[in-house]
């Protein structure tokens, strides 16, 4: 199995990674970059726990090889807060009790941030659709939706 050395740019910092080609981005972030905030819930692309932002788009880091992220800008949950100041979505999660065990939480944060940066005008309905792409076994989701809407208020749908 070939092992290559390459660089990943994560949260603006550069990391040297030596890994076989088959190593996923999720594994490389956790093991080679020491960024264990990204979690792996299924490793087959369904749960979304592993979601990170690659070049502005939320992606499932278990479905992407680390090598494929060479040269890309990767953002993970560790990069959301600015120093001690939480990202508004992180604060909204606290206020809305939108996490329990917190295992799915980084994936939801990166999903929501990534999707709304990509499409800042999305409607509440679009946002609800986005939220259905990740799994959480603890919260029953309503609190996550509340947090997302608090951090990213959507204009009320036009009355018919």
């Amino acid at each position: 199995m070939s092992r290559e050395t390459f660089r990943l740019t994560v949260n603006g910092a550069s990391y040297e990674v030596t890994a076989p080609d088959r190593k996923t981005l999720g594994d490389a972030l956790r093991e080679d970059c020491g960024l264990t905030g990204t979690h792996l819930g299924c490793e087959h692309g369904v749960c979304g726990t592993c979601t990170v932002i690659v070049d502005g788009r939320p992606v499932r880091s278990c479905l992407m090889f680390a090598r494929q992220a060479e040269g890309a800008q990767v953002r993970t949950v560790e990069g959301l807060a600015k120093g001690d100041t939480l990202h508004p979505l992180q604060q909204a999660f606290i206020d809305a009790h939108a996490l329990q065990c917190g295992f799915c939480t980084p994936g939801f944060l990166m999903l929501i941030v990534g999707a709304l940066e990509q499409d800042p005008d999305m409607t509440e309905e679009d946002l609800a659709h986005v939220l259905s792409s990740n799994l959480c076994r603890c919260t029953g989701y309503a609190s996550i939706a509340r947090a997302a809407l608090a951090a990213y208020p959507r204009p009320a749908p036009a009355a018919e």
């Binding site: 905030g37 560790e78 999660f93 606290i94 065990c101 917190g102 295992f103």
Partner: peptide
């Protein structure tokens, strides 16, 4: 009271420590 949780801040910033994070 519905006070905020002590657990939240580390979990929200990627500083949770789950078993697979033990290195």
């Amino acid at each position: 009271r519905a006070v905020p949780r002590l657990e939240d801040a580390p979990l929200l910033t990627g500083r949770g420590r789950f078993v697979d994070d033990v290195q």
